[in-house]
């Protein structure tokens, strides 16, 4: 929490949101410490309805906390041929202490490309634990990613786009600005030009990723950022890419960079 206070002093505005901070989770920022606005960038929280914000602010009422608990259980659960759990190597609480939620996707030299948190988890499962990879949008994968990103809650998004990551960042940026689908619209049309405007009953936000996996009321469960990308692609009648595709991992990097400085909010609640 200390470095968040420092950030405040550095002049990053704290969203004037009403916070019903009930968080009792050790090492995890409570609602009033969240940075919803950094520079000219604002979290989807700022565009959400008050009722939706209230659900997110109330850790006891946020329906996604079941997934945090579930993820915590998976963290310590032994699985696979090597007889290990995540906790065997990382310690029982290390997920709560790390900043993984702020840094991914990261460049992976062995793969020669960017790797998302989901892909890192499956690499660990296969190579260190001798366990089967989780399916992308499975209950286990969502629980573990919600748990790990929740461990970084309150910390500012901070992906690296330098060095080997630079060209993947450029690819993600290009994707964001590229028109697609029968409606011929790019991400930027809705989330840059349209942010703050109503598109019929929906208030368009900046399309920030700092709350993911996000609990959508529409889904009645958390979903990955790649699920959201697929939904937004299909909305404009464009063929979506696969979960974990290079295209989406690069897009995820660009979108995370756009939200730099915003607090990780996982599990955020949205419409």
């Amino acid at each position: 929490m200390g470095d968040i206070m420092k950030k405040q002093i550095q002049g990053i505005l704290i969203g004037a949101a009403v916070a019903v901070g009930l968080s009792g989770f050790a090492g995890v920022a409570s609602a009033q410490d969240m940075i919803y606005k950094a520079g000219d960038r604002q979290s989807g929280y700022m565009y959400a309805a008050k009722e939706t914000q209230a659900i997110q602010d109330d850790d006891l009422g946020n329906p996604a906390y079941i997934w945090v608990d579930e993820g915590e259980a998976l963290w310590t659960k032994v699985d696979g041929k090597a007889g290990k759990s995540c906790a065997t190597c990382h310690g029982a609480e290390s997920a709560m202490l790390t900043d993984v939620g702020t840094r991914y996707p990261v460049y992976n030299a062995k793969l020669g490309k960017m790797q998302s948190l989901e892909q890192k988890i499956n690499e660990e499962r296969q190579e260190k634990m001798g366990a089967k990879p989780y399916k992308w949008e499975s209950k286990q994968m969502l629980s573990l990613t919600v748990y790990m990103r929740n461990g970084s809650r309150g910390k500012p998004m901070n992906v690296s786009i330098d060095g080997p990551a630079a060209k993947f960042f450029e690819a993600g940026k290009k994707f964001f600005n590229q028109r697609r689908g029968q409606l011929d619209m790019a991400c930027k049309h809705c989330h840059e030009d349209g942010a703050g405007m109503m598109i019929r009953a929906n208030m368009l936000s900046e399309g920030q990723s700092n709350g993911f996996p996000t609990y959508r009321l529409k889904w009645q469960k958390p979903g990955s950022i790649h699920r959201r990308f697929r939904g937004c692609n299909k909305q404009v009648r464009a063929k979506p890419y696969g979960y974990g595709s290079d295209e989406y991992v690069n897009l995820e990097l660009f979108v995370a960079w756009r939200g730099r400085g915003l607090s990780v909010e996982t599990p955020a609640v949205r419409n």
Binding site: Q178, R179, G181, Q182, R237, A238, K239
Partner: peptide
């Protein structure tokens, strides 16, 4: 003149 239109469209 579109990019990646869903098959049915």
């Amino acid at each position: 003149g579109f990019t990646r239109v869903l098959k049915k469209f």
